[in-house]
Design a protein around this nucleic acid. Structure first.
Length: 189
DNA sequence: CGGCCGATCCACT
DNA sequence: GTGGATCGGCCGA
């Protein structure tokens, strides 16, 4: 049920990105439990992908996390105020990552609403990578957290999404021709 | 060290 | 549709 180490070690990050649709993202952060069904992802294909922070083999203190063995979280600060959550995949030294861009709340709605400062639940509360992290309680200081323990993990409950589409990725115009690759996946419950 | 900029979001018009 | 918020990471001097 919980995705295992071998799942994250697979080498086709694009296929894996699509496969994560319908999986359940679970988090137990500051003793508060939340769950959400993944409905939007983006693959970042390592050193050959101009949109990746690891493009051309770039290694910095921040991106070192992506070079570790798959099965951990890469969470970084974007635009000075949003923590974006990624799943690191593949073997050590192959810096593949999958950005989780959107999810549908499943458990812990009250906690999510409180974290987001909202009164009423709407379907788009966790649509958008910054919003998802805010609702789930992810923070860039947690980058490197193992997805095989009981803090942040992903479960397969046999949920299959409908109308799965692939499109170019969002917000990566700087990646020139790689910005056109169909590495974003979205589906519906 | 200084300056530029970003895998975003929301409140406005 | 558009611009501002906001600040760590990165690079060049």
């Amino acid at each position: 049920m919980k995705l295992s180490k071998s799942y994250f070690l697979r080498d086709d990050v694009v296929a894996l990105s699509k496969d994560l649709l319908g999986k359940v993202l679970c988090a137990n952060i500051q003793n508060r439990y939340t769950e959400a069904i993944i409905v939007e992802t983006e693959a970042y294909n390592g050193v050959v992908d101009k949109a990746s922070h690891a493009y051309n083999g770039r290694r910095t203190a921040r991106t070192e996390t992506m070079y570790q063995e798959g099965g951990i979280a890469y969470i970084y600060l974007c635009y000075g105020m949003y923590s974006l959550f990624n799943v690191v995949t593949n073997k050590k030294d192959i810096p593949h990552a999958i950005l989780i861009r959107g999810a549908m709340p499943l458990q812990g709605m009250e906690i999510m609403l409180q974290r987001c400062g909202k009164k009423t639940m709407k379907d788009d509360l966790l649509i958008g990578p910054g919003k998802l992290s805010k609702a789930m309680g992810f923070h860039y200081s947690q980058s490197g957290t193992s997805l095989l323990k009981n803090i942040i993990w992903i479960e397969d409950r046999g949920i299959h999404l409908k109308n799965i589409q692939s499109t170019p990725r969002i917000g990566v115009d700087y990646a020139k021709e790689d910005a056109l690759l169909p590495y974003r996946f979205v589906g519906q419950l």
